[in-house]
């Protein structure tokens, strides 16, 4: 055991940090893009506060288009863009580009779902008080849905976390890369098991933290 850690400890630590880097940076970027997209998807719907059904249909189709591209293909598909943006197409930083692009429409749908849960009566009440659309979005929609948004966040993080294994397999580093190199190419199953255990632990931590936050921020059941 001690030998194992002496030999692979640094490697696993580095891989973990890389995986976390490739998880959190794209998630943040994906929310920067996906949150406004989700708000737009919800508010432009028929009966929404800025209803524009035709725009909504086209925009929804656009979001689905990106959602439907398998991630592996998306990585290659956006390679030129990745190169343009970060100057390289390999490594963890380069992986952040397809990861963020894949996660953004996913986030948009998660946010849409969270905002849909809000009772239409509350929105109408805000309108009756003379709230502008912007005020309804920022003070009603995004505030009332905080617990749900946080639960969506945990699902998003874990999904991106899973995607990092794919980018790892195509040379971006991280735990996925280690598992691929040692487990698949060298048959060193002990290293692969170690990565699996690490992954499970990380996912559990992410899920618990998000659940805890969602519960803490939810004022409905006290």
């Amino acid at each position: 055991m001690a030998d194992f850690f002496a030999q692979y400890g640094d490697l696993l630590l580095e891989g973990t940090l890389e995986t976390l880097y490739m998880t959190f940076i794209p998630t943040v970027i994906a929310y920067c893009i996906g949150l406004p997209m989700g708000v737009l998807l919800t508010t432009t719907k028929q009966g929404g506060i800025m209803q524009a059904p035709r725009f909504n249909a086209v925009f929804g189709w656009f979001v689905n288009l990106f959602r439907s591209i398998p991630f592996m293909i998306l990585i290659f598909f956006v390679l030129p863009f990745t190169r343009l943006l970060v100057g390289t197409s390999i490594g963890a930083t380069a992986a952040n580009v397809p990861l963020a692009i894949a996660a953004a429409p996913f986030v948009a749908r998660m946010v849409e779902q969270s905002l849909e849960e809000i009772d239409g009566g509350v929105i109408e009440a805000a309108r009756c008080m003379g709230a502008t659309n912007w005020q309804i979005i920022t003070r009603v929609l995004l505030v009332e849905s905080i617990p749900s948004l946080l639960r969506g966040l945990s699902i998003t993080i874990i999904t991106v976390f899973g995607y990092t294994a794919v980018t790892g397999a195509v040379g971006a580093g991280g735990l996925g890369n280690i598992a691929f190199r040692f487990g698949y190419q060298r048959y060193q199953t002990d290293v692969m098991y170690a990565t699996v255990i690490l992954v499970v632990i990380l996912v559990c931590i992410i899920q618990s933290v998000c659940n805890l936050l969602a519960k803490k921020f939810d004022k409905r059941n006290r």
Binding site: E144, P147, D218, K219
Partner: peptide, 10 residues
């Protein structure tokens, strides 16, 4: 309103 329509998180 009949259903109060209060902000539940506030």
């Amino acid at each position: 309103f009949q259903g109060y329509n209060l902000l539940m998180q506030k």
